[in-house]
Design a protein around this nucleic acid. Structure first.
Length: 410
DNA sequence: TCCGACACATACAG
DNA sequence: TCTGTATGTGTCGG
């Protein structure tokens, strides 16, 4: 359990924003600070909940205790060969579908071409840590895949959720059309969901339900109808041929000097994905008015809504009242995410090891003991991703951000 | 060989 | 323009 005192001297206001996003679980929300893994959670992950968001970042802020997370190692039932072949297939499909990606120019290429005089210089130039062109749009996610149906409580209508996500930093295409990221570097991802034929107003005036698969002694014995208290978005990573306990980690802006957490689960209402430039502009803001502006894009303020319609919280009988905090994500933003250092990157097989990132829409339900539990409703995933490790050999090839130039070595 | 820790450097934010 | 920050990555040593 990580504890930070209020007078932690090295923490900036921006950290408070990050910390709030990463870690905050107020005592009031502590009851929902950690949720159990999905029943079919292959990775057995525990995530924290983002239950609060600070719209006004105080100078003297508080970083609350972070709920405990335990990676639960487990032997798991993944069909490796099948998954591998599936991923290889996806990789081929992706390369076929995006031939233009095979020769994406790189800023270092352009530098090299721009000026012969500077060429030798540029061959040894590192990627600048704060270069704004580190923000690049990553691979397209798959179509939304449904795991459990959602129904509208008022008329039992089948509701179609659509997940949206984009990687905004940390991945770029290699020479074969594969997507490459670096274990040591951050990536940024945003995600949201919408419900087809549901305007926002219609959404917040309704309730929804789904079915929970029930089982006895491991045998599936049907489904129970369960009301969805609220929706949530989470990010998980999966590996092509291995089982990795917790494979993603989130840092604060302080990186080594700050705490690290698994990416939070965001309780969320439907929202549109902001464009790439907006996400890029939202990072590392310290100016309060800019932060507030960004908060309006990424968060929904329930108390504003209640005030606006002059509705007593207690009288609200919609899905909205079940959310654990007034500040609810419209867009889940995952910043400063890295694959955990514990993942192994080299595969013993001929194929290299791939990862995929999955954005999941969860329905949070309350069982008879008032325990909350997530149900996986739908998900989207990236094409296979190659994560390069720390080996210096990864920093010399393939003209990615690790490219050091080797055409004219001195 | 891998990893945590520390270090250096450099564009951004204000 | 100047200062503090955030972050890619170099490096040391276990």
């Amino acid at each position: 359990m990580m504890t930070l005192s209020n007078d932690e001297p090295t923490i900036s206001p921006d950290d408070a924003a990050t910390a709030a996003a990463v870690a905050a679980a107020s005592t009031a929300a502590a009851a929902v600070a950690a949720i159990p893994p999905l029943k079919d959670d292959e990775h057995g992950l525990h995530h924290s909940f983002v239950t609060q968001h600070q719209h006004h970042i105080p100078q003297q802020h508080t970083m609350q205790h972070h709920p405990q997370h335990h990676a639960i190692p487990h032997g798991h039932p993944q069909d490796h060969d099948h998954l591998n072949s599936q991923i290889n297939h996806q990789l081929q499909q992706h390369a076929l579908a995006h031939p233009q990606l095979n020769h994406a120019p790189h800023h270092l290429d352009m530098l090299a071409q721009a000026n012969e005089e500077d060429f030798l210089d540029s061959t040894n130039r590192k990627v600048a840590p704060r270069a704004s062109d580190l923000f690049k749009i990553g691979p397209q996610f798959s179509e939304t895949r449904h795991h459990q149906d959602i129904y509208c409580k008022s008329n039992d209508m089948d509701v179609n959720p659509i997940l949206h996500a984009r990687i905004d930093r940390g991945f770029e295409v290699g020479e074969n059309g594969t997507w490459i990221g670096y274990k040591r570097n951050y990536f940024t991802l945003v995600a949201s969901f919408t419900l087809e034929n549901f305007s926002f107003d219609r959404f917040i005036q309704n309730k929804f339900y789904t079915y929970e698969k029930s089982s006895k002694n491991g045998e599936s014995v049907g489904e129970n109808k369960v009301e969805i208290s609220y929706f949530a978005i989470r990010l998980v990573a999966k590996c092509s041929d291995d089982d990795v306990s917790i494979s993603l980690i989130q840092h604060t802006a302080k990186r080594d000097k700050g705490p690290q957490f698994p990416p939070p689960i965001y309780p969320a209402v439907p929202g549109e994905l902001p464009d790439h430039e907006t996400v890029k502009a939202s990072c590392n803001k310290r100016n309060n008015s800019k932060i507030e502006h960004m908060n309006k894009i990424f968060y929904y303020d329930r108390s504003d809504y209640y005030q606006h319609v002059n509705l007593d919280t207690l009288k609200d009988d919609s899905v909205l009242k079940n959310y654990p905090s007034d500040s609810i994500a419209k867009v889940a933003r995952f910043e400063r995410i890295q694959f955990t250092s514990s993942i192994r990157l080299k595969s013993t097989s001929v194929n290299s090891r791939y990862f995929t990132l999955h954005v999941e829409l969860l329905g949070i339900i309350e069982n008879e003991d008032s325990q909350i539990q997530p149900i996986l409703l739908s998900s989207i995933e990236t094409p296979p991703l190659i994560i390069r490790g720390r080996s210096p050999s990864n920093y010399h090839k393939d003209r990615t951000s690790g490219y050091r130039g080797h055409l004219h070595p001195q």
